[in-house]
């Protein structure tokens, strides 16, 4: 049997199909988020099915997650991205104690206990200053591609100080820095440090490792280094970091398989072990 996880995020939609025997990923896909969320997600789901040469009937259960999860009425159930992210990452790194998830429009710090259950979590509030959207705006300002931002930070000699707690004001600061002829490398490094500092404030007290970095922003080179510097501990990048929440959703779907009207409480244990 096969199971699907759909992560309808703020900037992209992700679909992961797994096989229940070994929780192996059989196919996955990603597309940009848009106005018609439910339709976009279903189209992506169908194309991932085609890629895996599967029919809809082969999928025993679909779990939706992400901020658009409730719009996907064709999913069997919904689970929050916090729980899904924790499950996806825990499957890869069984003893993980902290997940840093920086996505398109929000960032989260999820702490797991020794049993691998979510202990607590923190999220950014009402502003995108610690998120991927911040990097998109910076890339736009500097007339660069998002994926090239990481490379340029290697040339940073004196990272700029970006103090703003708000993306719009931070953009104003960047305009000011450009006017005073700060190099793009120093500006990008400054932005990455500022995101890492925001994460540090969400982490709060003591840090227990392993710390794993997931979400789309983990794909940008230099971000994990900026985090390591602020957190003063090793930060491992999750495998396929943009897909881990969808993967976690698929794992939860597989865990619910044998239960009629499966509630989450019946499925969360044993997944990923």
């Amino acid at each position: 049997m096969f199971y699907a996880g759909v992560d309808a995020g703020s900037r992209t939609i992700k679909v992961v199909l797994i096989h229940d025997a070994d929780r192996r990923v059989v196919a996955s896909g990603l597309c940009a988020q848009g106005v018609r969320q439910a339709v976009l997600a279903e189209e992506l789901f169908q194309s991932v099915l085609r890629e895996a040469r599967l029919q809809r009937n082969d999928i025993a259960r679909v779990v939706a997650t992400g901020y658009g999860r409730n719009a996907l009425d064709w999913a069997d159930t919904t689970v929050t991205e916090i729980t899904c992210q924790a499950y996806g990452v825990r499957h890869q790194v069984p003893h993980v104690r902290m997940v840093i998830d920086i996505g398109g429009e929000d960032s989260k710090v999820i702490r797991l206990d020794q049993q691998g259950i979510v202990h607590d979590f923190a999220m950014n509030d009402r502003c995108a200053a610690g998120t991927g959207r911040f990097l998109e705006i910076v890339a736009d300002r500097l007339e660069m591609k998002l994926q090239d931002l990481g490379q340029i930070t290697r040339m940073a000699e004196h990272p700029a100080v970006i103090s703003s707690m708000c993306v719009v004001f931070a953009e104003t600061e960047i305009v000011g820095l450009l006017a005073s002829e700060a190099s793009p490398a120093n500006i990008v490094a400054g932005v990455q440090n500022s995101i890492a500092k925001r994460i540090l404030s969400m982490v709060g007290g003591k840090i227990e490792g392993p710390v794993v970095f997931a979400g789309g922003v983990a794909l940008i080179p230099g971000m994990s280094l900026a985090l390591e510097k602020e957190l003063k501990c090793p930060v491992e990048i999750a495998r396929d970091p943009q897909m881990t929440a969808a993967f976690g959703a698929a794992l939860i779907a597989a865990g619910q398989k044998s239960k009629v009207n499966a509630g989450l409480d019946h499925c969360l244990l044993g997944v990923g072990k």
Partner: peptide
């Protein structure tokens, strides 16, 4: 709502544990 739901998922998970 996301935070509250996530909290309740944790309560359930701990209960099963």
């Amino acid at each position: 709502a996301l935070r509250v739901q996530s909290l309740f998922e944790t309560v359930s998970a701990r209960g099963s544990s």
